[in-house]
Every structure is written in structure tokens, then in C-alpha cells.
Amino acid sequence: MAEMTLFRYLHRDTVLHRMDGRLKLGSMLLLSVSASLAGALRHYLVLFCLLCIALRVAKLPWAALLKELKFFALIIWVVLSINATTIPGDPIPNLPLPGVTVQGVITGLRFAGRLINIILICVVTTGTTPLRTLRHVIEWCLRPLPFVPEVRIATMIQLTFALIPVLFIEFAEMSRAQKARCLEVRKNPIKRMYYTVLPFLEQTLHRTDQIVEAMEARGYSEIRTKAAFKSKTSDWLIFTLCLFVFLVIVFTKRG
């Protein structure tokens, strides 16, 4: 089965892969908030450069990732177009396209910059963190909270992350199988959906059942091994750098 690289853990021996999961998640959280708060072009550029360096340091496969990010490029293009044409403002001089405003393009570009940075944060986090570590970090974070079933929540998140790419692949496979039997000939889009979406939902539920059985067969329990975390100086340095970027964006935004 062909394997997606996007949003999947890719094992390498790098400082980001070895980083303490708690500090890594903390750093990525700081960068995500920074991306949401960023307002000026320089903010987006700083974050973008930092994330590109992180991708390089993590030795993640650029070419494969860019190829798989095509879907997001389409979203960005659609949102940019909608913003550019629907937000009222001054028309762009000498542009043959009617209805496109300067304010609309700027708003669209801001959205695009934010989305690109957030996608890159997700790529770096998922590419360098095994789901098992992610689960342990979530458990660790939720443990002090009363009445919160931290193990159950962490397991649910782990299973969701593990299953999403598999379900994508299965949906594509199912669509191909239906196309091979000339589903496209049917004119009615609802009928077409009926023959792809419903079987897919049924298959997803069936698969969920099987996973639950497999987990039970190996004695799934909520009293589980707790991870032993260790943080190194390099981990704290990366965290401090992210904190610095976050503070700079917060204060320059206010200023």
C-alpha cells in the first residue's frame, strides 16, 4: 500500500525527533498561537523561516510533502479568491479582473499565511513525534485535572490520528472500485454519494469494531504504563526560542 508522508511520523535521528515530547508540544503550541496572532507580514515571514529551518533540521522529505500539500493549495486559492472579490474596498488599479479589492487581497493573504504556517507546524509535529509519545504527553497534561479520563482521551486521540490516513486510503480505493464499475455514468449526484459514502461509513464502523476487538484481545486497560520523560538542554533551548518568537509577536502586535 502506498504510504502518505503528510501528517505521519517519519523516523529520523535528529534533535527534533529526540526532543522531550512535553517541550515539543509546548513549543508547537506557542508557535500555533503565534501564527493565529500574527498580523504583519514580518510575523508570517519569521514563523515561516523558523518552520522551514525546523523541517530541514528534522530531515523531513520536502518534495513528497509539497506534493501531498496540493489539496491545501487549492483551499488557499479558493479562500484567497473569495476574500479578494467579496471584501469591499479600493479596486486594484490596472487589474483587468472586476471586483478585486486591495483590502480583500490583503485579508486573503493573511489567511493564507496563517494557514501555511499552521500546516507546517502540524507537519513538523506529526513528522517528528510518534503517536505513542503524543499519547503520553496528552495523558501527562490532563492527569492533574480532576474528573478527566486522561487515558481514554489520549487513546482516542491516538486512534484518530492512526486511523485518519488509513481511512483516506480506503476511501480512495473504494471510489476507484466504484469507478471501475462505471459509477460516473450515473447522473444523480445523490445516488453517486449513496454508493460511495454509505459503504464507506459502514466500513469505517466495521473497522472501528475490529480495532476495539483487537485492543481487547491484548488486554486494553486504562491503568497503563506511564512514560518517563527526560528533557535535555537542547530541548529547553528550542522551547526558549519558540517562547521568544511568541513574545516578540505578542508585543510587536500590541505596539
Binding site: R8, Y9, H11, A162, I211, E213, A214, M215
Partner: peptide, 11 residues
């Protein structure tokens, strides 16, 4: 394939 819950072989 239907019983794997880990993202890596070790997991």
C-alpha cells in the same frame, strides 16, 4: 492490517 493500533512497528 485490521488489528494494528500503533503507528510504528515498535509502538
Amino acid at each position: 492490517d485490521r488489528q494494528f493500533v500503533g503507528q510504528t512497528v515498535a509502538e
